[in-house]
Structures are given as C-alpha cells and as structure tokens.
Simulated assay, not measured.
Amino acid sequence: MEYSKEMVKIAYQALEDKKGEDIQVIEIKDISIIADYFIIANGVNAPQVDALVDSVKDALGRKGYEPKRIEGIRSASWILLDYGDVVIHVFSKEDRLFYNLERIWRDGKTVSKEELGV
C-alpha cells in the first residue's frame, strides 16, 4: 500500500508539471479489487494528453515502475495506464465529461493534494 501511495504522488506531480487539468485521486481499495487508487486528469487537446501520458510514464519509469498495460494510445482521447495498484486515466476534456468516472466511483474516497503530501 505504501508504494502505491508513492506512485500516486509521482504521477500526480508528473501530471501537474505538464499542466494536467482537474487532477483527481480516488482511493478505491475498500470498494474494489481493481486497484488501490484511480488518478483522473484531462488535457485540453490530443498533444497535451500525449504529453501528460509521457510525463507520467517517464516519472514512474525513473523510479522503476513500469505499466502492466496501456490502453487507448491511438485515440488520445482516453488513455489508461495500468500500474496494478494505481490506474491512471488521462482524458480529453470532452471524453472526461462524457464518461464521468468520478460519478461512477463516487463511493471511493477522494484524496486531496494536501493529504498526498505533494
């Protein structure tokens, strides 16, 4: 669990560094076996979405974390980076509104930037 929180901090900072919008962290470990945390963010256009994804992959890779799976690279409107205990969703603004993962996972605990210690 402790390493997953470290991964969340690294990914959050990487998203913030590339000006990711509305970065949300949802702790889901008590309501799902999928992961401990979801991180949701969006970019304003496809190049920024790609930059956000590259930033996260680079930052986590430098610490030895490699994604188990990546989905959606071609479309660049919703890219999922699956690191096992941490799943990162990077959306275009429109797709984020459409899929509304925050509503779907509203039973999870929203974790603030301050709680993360970022």
Rank of each mutant, 00 (worst) to 15 (best):
residue 59 A to I: 03
residue 30 D to F: 05
residue 40 I to R: 00
residue 114 E to K: 14
residue 58 D to T: 07
residue 46 A to M: 15
residue 111 V to W: 06
residue 11 A to G: 06
residue 97 L to R: 13
residue 112 S to D: 11
residue 36 D to S: 10
residue 101 L to G: 00
residue 48 Q to E: 12
residue 42 N to L: 05
residue 11 A to N: 06
residue 118 V to G: 02
residue 84 G to F: 03
residue 69 R to H: 11
residue 32 S to W: 08
residue 94 E to H: 14
residue 69 R to K: 10
residue 28 I to G: 09
residue 26 I to F: 07
residue 43 G to K: 02
residue 83 Y to C: 03
residue 109 K to W: 06
residue 1 M to L: 07
residue 2 E to D: 12
residue 57 K to A: 11
residue 56 V to F: 02
residue 31 I to W: 06
residue 72 G to A: 09
residue 17 D to C: 05
residue 71 E to Q: 06
residue 52 L to S: 02
residue 113 K to V: 12
residue 26 I to P: 00
residue 32 S to V: 05
residue 49 V to I: 14
residue 100 N to M: 06
residue 77 S to Y: 15
residue 118 V to R: 04
residue 38 F to G: 02
residue 76 A to Q: 15
residue 17 D to T: 11
residue 8 V to N: 02
residue 75 S to I: 12
residue 117 G to V: 06
residue 103 R to S: 10
residue 66 E to H: 12
residue 74 R to F: 11
residue 85 D to C: 05
residue 98 F to R: 12
residue 104 I to G: 06
residue 98 F to I: 02
residue 108 G to W: 01
residue 34 I to N: 03
residue 46 A to I: 14
residue 99 Y to S: 08
residue 98 F to G: 04
residue 89 H to S: 09
residue 32 S to E: 05
residue 50 D to V: 10
residue 80 L to R: 03
residue 92 S to D: 10
residue 68 K to N: 05
residue 62 R to A: 13
residue 106 R to D: 12
residue 32 S to P: 04
residue 79 I to Y: 01
residue 48 Q to N: 08
residue 58 D to A: 08
residue 1 M to V: 13
residue 34 I to L: 08
residue 22 D to Q: 07
residue 51 A to F: 04
residue 93 K to Q: 13
residue 83 Y to N: 01
residue 33 I to C: 08
residue 24 Q to C: 13
residue 91 F to A: 03
residue 34 I to M: 11
residue 1 M to H: 10
residue 84 G to L: 09
residue 73 I to E: 14
residue 21 E to S: 14
residue 42 N to M: 07
residue 113 K to Q: 15
residue 102 E to A: 05
residue 30 D to N: 13
residue 55 S to N: 05
residue 28 I to M: 11
residue 51 A to G: 10
residue 57 K to C: 04
residue 94 E to M: 09
residue 46 A to S: 15
residue 109 K to V: 15
residue 59 A to N: 04
residue 15 L to I: 13
residue 36 D to Q: 12
residue 91 F to V: 11
residue 102 E to S: 04
residue 39 I to K: 00
residue 116 L to N: 04
residue 71 E to G: 02
residue 40 I to H: 00
residue 115 E to K: 15
residue 53 V to Q: 01
residue 115 E to A: 15
residue 25 V to M: 05
residue 3 Y to F: 14
residue 83 Y to G: 02
residue 33 I to N: 10
residue 101 L to H: 00
residue 81 L to S: 08
residue 25 V to Q: 01
residue 24 Q to H: 09
residue 66 E to V: 10
residue 76 A to K: 15
residue 39 I to N: 00
residue 55 S to H: 04
residue 22 D to M: 03
residue 112 S to R: 12
residue 75 S to Q: 14
residue 87 V to H: 02
residue 20 G to V: 09
residue 101 L to I: 11
residue 77 S to H: 15
residue 60 L to C: 10
residue 102 E to L: 02
residue 14 A to V: 04
residue 75 S to M: 14
residue 101 L to N: 01
residue 106 R to W: 07
residue 2 E to N: 13
residue 35 A to T: 09
residue 113 K to A: 15
residue 26 I to K: 05
residue 36 D to P: 03
residue 100 N to A: 14
residue 49 V to Y: 02
residue 54 D to W: 09
residue 103 R to C: 01
residue 98 F to Y: 13
residue 8 V to A: 03
residue 55 S to I: 05
residue 50 D to L: 11
residue 111 V to R: 04
